[in-house]
Amino acid sequence: MSTYAFQHLTPQLPSTEPIRVKRWSLTKVISNTTLLVIGAFFLLPMLWLFAASVDTSASWQLRVPDFTTRNYLLALQPDYTRALVNSLILSLIATVVATVAAFLAAYSFSRQHIPWKGPILLTILFLSGVPISILIVPIYKMFSYVGWLSIFPTAVILGVTALPFEIYLIKNAVDAIPLDLEEAAHIEKASTWKILSRIVIPLTMPGIASAAIFGFVNAWGSFLIPLVLISRAAEQPGPVRMYGFMNSVAINYGAVAAFSILYSLPVVILYLLMSRSFRAGFVLGGAVR
């Protein structure tokens, strides 16, 4: 023992060079250059968007802007903000409808005994690949027959289009939770609701968050369905409105760019908000041995 007591707290390091991992290699250079080139393809349009949105005489070309705020003022006129609010309403309703229904379905698919579970799940996966546009005519007929050509029923339909994929996303998340956790909670006399709210939902949160973002973006970017299913112009969402910028004789590139930036803000904010739940992913560590 006594020999240890007099030793220094930090031991003497060896005098040779520490081991270094080689940073540069041909493969790394090649792969990073390729990625940079691909990245540029995505970056240039973004650059154009920001430049054009503050340019007095924006065109389709990328150039140094003559600074102005006129484009934003145009894009913020009540008509256009109204369209943004409509988009928000549409997407929020669609997200809530789809995510709640998808969670309940996914939980049942994951935990309950359901006859023909495999084929049903395959069908759902197949449905998530079917473009909803092919059903637009019959849906239009139905909706116009019952007088539903307005924003709320359209929001529900948009939610339904996201349902199959959301079920899949959430089911995978629920599958990853060991059944033991729920059993342990059962034994502790927790009610089904308590088990869902305090154990299953928190642990499924990364899956639910990705599903919710998918549902939101799916509705946010939809153009054809609102265009066909919403009869009143005042209830039309952003993308349909944006179409209006381009329909005029000369396209107002600056206004389109400004509106596009405003229009993408909610999605960016949503990602930032949800990123916490994504980071909470892999929370299952330490649950079972």
Partner: peptide
Amino acid sequence: PPGRRDIAMVFQSYALYPHMSVRSNLSFG
């Protein structure tokens, strides 16, 4: 059902709630 038998069990696999602290794991019941 298990909840109405008034039984406490230690699982062979532990079955801890991974998103809760040790304190919450103990006080959950």
